[in-house]
Every structure is written in C-alpha cells, then in structure tokens.
Design a protein around this nucleic acid. Sequence first.
DNA 1: TCGGAAACGTTACTTTATACCACCGGGCCG
DNA 2: CGGCCCGGTGGTATAAAGTAACGTTTCCGA
Lengths: 167, 167
Amino acid sequence: MTEAQAKPNGPMPSAQMERKLAKAVERAQQAFMEKNLRFTQLRQDVFAEIAATHASIGAYDILARLAEKGTRLAPISVYRAIDALLEAGVIHRLESKNAFFACRRIEHRTGRRPIFLACENCNGVQEVDSDGIFETIDRLSAAASFQPRVKFVEVSGLCEACRPGKD
Amino acid sequence: MTEAQAKPNGPMPSAQMERKLAKAVERAQQAFMEKNLRFTQLRQDVFAEIAATHASIGAYDILARLAEKGTRLAPISVYRAIDALLEAGVIHRLESKNAFFACRRIEHRTGRRPIFLACENCNGVQEVDSDGIFETIDRLSAAASFQPRVKFVEVSGLCEACRPGKD
DNA sequence: TCGGAAACGTTACTTTATACCACCGGGCCG
DNA sequence: CGGCCCGGTGGTATAAAGTAACGTTTCCGA
Ligand SMILES: [Zn+2]
Ligand SMILES: [Zn+2]
Ligand SMILES: [Zn+2]
Ligand SMILES: [Zn+2]
C-alpha cells in the first residue's frame, strides 16, 4: 500500500479521484460556512481522508492514514474533528460498525434523513431516501408515547458489486 | 451512569419482581429447549441479570453486577453467554448503545422484527411492531441492488415517564 | 464408556472512545 | 494597550467495549 504520491484507493484514475475529492472538500467547506462553524486544517484533513475512501472508515484507520502522511495525531484530535464534521452534517456515523463515511447528499444537512445500506464486504455505504420510514417511526413512537430524538435505520448486507453468484 | 435506573413502569414490590424475573427465566429456558441450545448456569445468570434491569445494560455492567454477587468472570465469558442468548432470541442488542436487553415478545424468536424505542434517561427499551418498515427497507434495498442481511431500526429519545413537561 | 464437540477459564490483547490539563491565538472589553 | 474569555489543539493517560489463543472441563450420543 505504498504508492507514488497519490491516494492508492481504487480502480479510478488518480487524477479524477483527486478532482472529485477536491470538490467534496469544497462542498464541506461550504457547509461549515453556512453553519458558522470553522473548517480548520485538521478538520479538512480528517474530512479528506474520510471522503477519499468512498466507504466507511474507523477513527483509528483515519489516524493511521494521516500518520502515514506525516500527520501524527492523538486519537482525541481525530475524534474532535469527527464531532465537528458530524455537526456540520458532512459525514455520517454508522452505528453498527463504529465507522464514519462522507455524506454525498446535500439535503441531509437540512434535516432530511436517509437510510444507510452498508456493504459487509467492501464497506461501501449507499444512502437511499427513506420513503416514509421516518414518518412511520414518528407515528409508531407517538402511539407508544415516546418522544423520538435520533433515529437510526441501517442495513448491513452486500452491495451489487460484492454480491456472489453474479459475474 | 451505571446504577439505579428508574424503571419505566414505576416502583414494584420486590416479591413481585422476583416472580416476574423467575417467569422470564423460565420462558428463556423454554426458548433454549425449543432451539436445542443449552441453557447453562452461566447463561442463566447472565440472562437473569439482563432481565432484572428491565432496561438496556452493557456487558461490563453485567460483569460488575455478577461480581458483586460473588460470580467473578472474565469479559469473554459474559460475551459468550450473550452470544448464546442472542442466538436463542431471548435478548436483543441495541447497536446505538452497545447494550443489551431482554426480549419481552415471544414472536421475535420466530423471525418477526420489531423496532426499538430506547429512552436516553432511564435506558428503558420498548419493542414495537414495525408496521411494514422492514418491508419498505427490503423494497428500497432491492431498488438499490443491495442484498440486505441484517436490518435494524432504533430510536433514541425519551419515554413517557421521563418526558419533561408532564407531571 | 469413550471420543468429539460444546462450554468454560485464564491470560493477554485489540479496538474504540473519553478525561484532564496545559497552551495558543484571536476577538472583545476596559 | 493589556487582560480576559473561548474555541481549537496537543499530550498523556485511562476508560469502555470486544476478541484471540489455548488449554481444561463437561456433556452427550454412539
Ligand atoms: Zn448523507
Ligand atoms: Zn460491496
Ligand atoms: Zn424482542
Ligand atoms: Zn425513560
């Protein structure tokens, strides 16, 4: 896993990946500005690392990758950056895996919640529209006199590419 | 926050609690028999500890409570018991809290999935019928060419008893 | 009754996450 | 200008959650 210079992360041409990553970072910056939060260097570095994987990644993996690039950090620093990124809504937390991934849908930052489809093989995550699930949850909660605050809908399985019996 | 949770259902005489717990243990035993699994002493102890809280409880809390009663165990032993209890379907795991609670709906052992309403104040958990949510998830997964394996829907919030602004 | 599988004990370890305290740098008040 | 607050950061240490490895015991069916 040592490459000349750039991110060795997938079958996509490095240049194109770089461009996409830069765009994602730019969008993140925008999100921070809109919420009057500071997109510091550390936060940017951590976000870039998460966005670069195009999958879910654990806090300590981020730590390790940054370390490889010369940025040695304490875990707490990464977690603080992650907290800020979560607050800005530019990443999501995958509860079932204790991992994080970059949000690719701008509308999530305005309160709209998706559901997460997490591949057990490649760690890729799809965010798909909840199609009324959260409304149903609200209704069920109300019927149970329960006041919902945070709702998690996560599905673990296999994505199309990782599915067996297809070639 | 490991001690003395208020029960969602108010104070209950100790004798009655004992009786309820005994019943729960008995039902668990039944479930183990039906699945040809062994309801060993360790598993029974761990289950009793979980069922006694009437709320979600972490593995290390179980460990501590058993230790107080003279049963000193290694973490792995508790986790092995938990695995068996999960397999038998007599407890559920709350992914968003890394905690476990006793199932109070027999029908869950036959594949029917509920959604979980977890109180952030008292740690009580309600299991309510999913009312088609899981079917919706299946549909959304199919539309995304995703093959689901494990699904969970968890809601974190406040139960009726813990709700502010009501007395 | 004996042989293999399941359960358990013990030790050590990994992974995930937070507490605590000091410091720095920019905005703000006097 | 000078002192102060405050959010962000660095560093150390430690808590919390979960697992690997390996040997021993217990159970159960042939
Ligand atoms: Zn998103
Ligand atoms: Zn995949
Ligand atoms: Zn249940
Ligand atoms: Zn409550």
